[in-house]
Design a protein around this nucleic acid. Structure first.
Length: 261
DNA sequence: ACGGATGTTATTAA
DNA sequence: ATTAATAACATCCG
């Protein structure tokens, strides 16, 4: 599920459930996603409390009162669950036990996620070569990041080094809302098109966060609700088409979104 | 039964 | 240096 809006919800979830409680134990039902030895996680976290949760692109950083951060990446199927009493959630990879016996589980069905231990966030951001966050980037920096790019606009939007947070589904949506064909070569898009795209980048992400990622509650004029080959375009008489762009399944409306070559 | 799925990364190639 | 295409990771769903 997770692109920037969903990670934002995970961040809020951690803030609501898991801050300021002493961590007493950590289980690792599976260690293959760990980017540091399990013992290092235990040493850094047990006996401490989480003080803050921040999102960096599609990563979620949870920082302790001793300044080290636990950082999750969710891959395609990762999620968090805070609970007590129930059984171990299926596909749990890491269970953090708090002093009151509530637990925070990191769950990842397809093992495409990663769990990091970081000294501090600026270093982590640098090591992972993350671009500016999609919700933070200014129009000026956004326009600058498109300069000199000859690849497809969709590929640029999804490149985490250029800008962090946007993935396959939401890039399609912001291009649809902007009337730009996803396969358009970036350098061929007009200045007004780029400015429109900047506005829709923010609008789409903010709307998705506001609706808490529940797609049925997204506006009917959104492509996300018609993300299927042959569906009716919600804005014109056209039909939604599926193609491949930058290696990913891409949905768009050929009559609303013309390619700029 | 097979293809595809919200992500990243390595490899290879142009 | 860019860009793109492909495969790989693992598992479920339609």
């Amino acid at each position: 599920m997770p692109e920037l809006p969903e990670i934002t919800l995970f961040r809020n979830y951690v803030r609501e459930t898991s801050l300021n409680k002493v961590i007493k134990k950590i289980d690792f039902p599976e260690t293959s996603l760990l980017q540091s030895p399990a013992e290092d996680f235990r040493k850094a976290l047990i006996g401490r409390k989480f003080k803050s949760a921040e999102r960096l692109g599609k990563y979620l950083a949870v920082t302790t009162d001793h300044k080290k951060s636990l950082i999750f990446h969710f891959g395609m199927t990762g999620k968090l669950e805070y609970y007590s009493n129930q059984e171990l959630p299926k596909y749990s990879k890491m269970i953090i036990w708090f002093e009151d016996d509530y637990r925070l589980a990191y769950i990842c069905r397809r093992k495409l996620g990663k769990i990091f231990l970081a000294e501090d966030l600026p270093t982590f951001r640098k090591e992972n070569e993350l671009g500016p966050d999609a919700l933070e980037i200014s129009e000026k920096d956004f326009l600058k990041s498109l300069e000199g790019k000859t690849g497809t606009i969709k590929g640029v939007l999804m490149d985490q080094h250029i800008m962090a947070g946007v993935g396959n589904v939401y890039s399609d949506e912001m291009l649809y809302q902007s009337g730009i064909h996803p396969g358009s070569k970036t350098d061929k898009i007009s200045v007004s098109g780029r400015k429109k795209l900047f506005k829709e980048l923010k609008a789409v992400l903010e709307m998705a966060i506001e609706k808490e990622g529940v797609r049925k509650e997204f506006p009917k004029s959104y492509l996300i609700r018609h993300r299927k080959e042959g569906e009716n375009c919600p804005r014109c008489a056209g039909k939604v088409k599926k193609i491949k762009v930058s290696g990913r399944s891409t949905y768009f409306c050929p009559s609303c979104q013309k390619e700029e070559k």
